[in-house]
């Protein structure tokens, strides 16, 4: 029996998932995770040399590499972006956790100088807190939390998000405003609950 090429495999899995097969997502997840993680690291080091970083470009590259372009529909693409946003969130938060841990008690020394000290560890802590706030938003308002995930972690624009969620662009804008205000309230501690 011949092994199905990975591109086909992923395209197939995407199609199955779109048709409602949840176990397809379970298989898809680690494959996309690995690719996105690899690309993210590469993009990050490029970013450090002065290039700007674009999540969409990153996910696009993963998409082109992973998905067979000849057998694909737009709907597949937006599904790919949806799952990628979720995965990017995980990659970043996992990383932030490790980073924050290393900075706190993991034996790594923290920096004495203002830039290094002020920029890095705080970003990781902020991201972790944001992720937690986003989880509690998901409990009361799954759609709004998804809008945030797609936009902030997935880098999708409102039009793309509207496509993924089957709502109007206007709704996406409003959802975003509301969700962001609420998250801000949570993170700055000005919210009561």
């Amino acid at each position: 029996m011949t092994r199905i090429p990975r591109q086909h495999e992923i395209t197939q899995l995407l199609a199955e998932w779109r048709e409602g097969n949840q176990s397809a997502l379970d298989e898809l997840y680690p494959l996309v995770y690995a690719e996105l993680h690899r690309l993210a690291r590469r993009y990050m080091s490029r970013e450090r040399q002065g290039h700007t970083l674009q999540t969409t470009a990153l996910i696009n590259e993963a998409y082109v590499r992973l998905v067979d372009q000849k057998n694909v529909q737009w709907a597949n693409r937006s599904h790919f972006f949806a799952i990628s946003a979720q995965i990017m969130r995980r990659i970043l938060i996992d990383h932030a956790r490790r980073h924050a841990y290393a900075k706190r008690g993991g034996g790594a020394q923290q920096v004495s100088l203002e830039e290094a000290a002020a920029v890095t560890p705080e970003h990781s802590l902020e991201l972790i807190r944001l992720d937690e706030a986003l989880k509690s938003l998901a409990e009361r308002d799954p759609r709004r939390s998804q809008v945030v995930e797609l936009r902030y972690f997935g880098g999708l624009n409102n039009e793309e998000i509207a496509g993924v969620l089957h709502v109007s662009e206007n709704t996406v804008t409003r959802d975003w405003n509301m969700a962001r205000a609420w998250l801000y309230q949570q993170l700055t501690g000005s919210g009561a609950n």
């Binding site: 993210a40 690291r41 993009y43 990050m44 080091s45 970013e47 450090r48 970083l53 674009q54 999540t55 990153l58 990017m88 969130r89 970043l92 990383h95 932030a96 490790r98 980073h99 290393a102 290094a116 920029v119 890095t120 560890p121 970003h123 990781s124 902020e126 991201l127 944001l130 902030y152 972690f153 880098g155």
Partner: peptide, 14 residues
Amino acid sequence: MAVEYAASMFGDNE
């Protein structure tokens, strides 16, 4: 985007 925000910490860990 989150990934820009996280860029510095990625670099730092490598």
